[in-house]
Amino acid sequence: MLKEISITVNGQQHTLEVEPRLLLVHMIRELLNLTGTHIGCDTSSCGACTILLDGKSIKSCTVLAVQANGKSITTIEGVAQDGQLSPLQEGFKENHGLHCGFCTPGMILRATELLANNPNPTEEEIRWGIAGNLCRCTGYNNIVKAIQYAGAKIRGEELPSTEPEFV
């Protein structure tokens, strides 16, 4: 039995017929072909599937598509505005905050909410703030730096150096 839902995705309205058991992440990836949202686990542990649901970061593998009915979501594809990278996208690129890039969309969306709630987090707040998102490649140092860089950019402050401290 299919159920009709209506959902705003990256500013665009969609009406879809879905199985009630369909996970939101599968709706995004399979029905809307927005493949920037990734799947890294089956236990809600890794955060690769993180998106924004009405502005809040959620793990889209843990929400049913029908639960998003009438709501608005943002995926990584909707983060850059008019071809302009968001401060976080820029921060990740400038600070080598990614290697394989698989965790990156989830990290960026998680950090988007983190900075929205707390534009000037301490390093510890950042680390705890992204503790629901696993990265196997970067060792997190540069993800922290990327988020600090984005925070400075949002606050309109001077941007920290992006040179590696590798002497």
Partner: peptide, 9 residues
């Protein structure tokens, strides 16, 4: 990086 940060990997 350009593709990865925009979900185009």
């Amino acid at each position: 990086d350009a593709r990865f940060i925009q979900g185009k990997g």
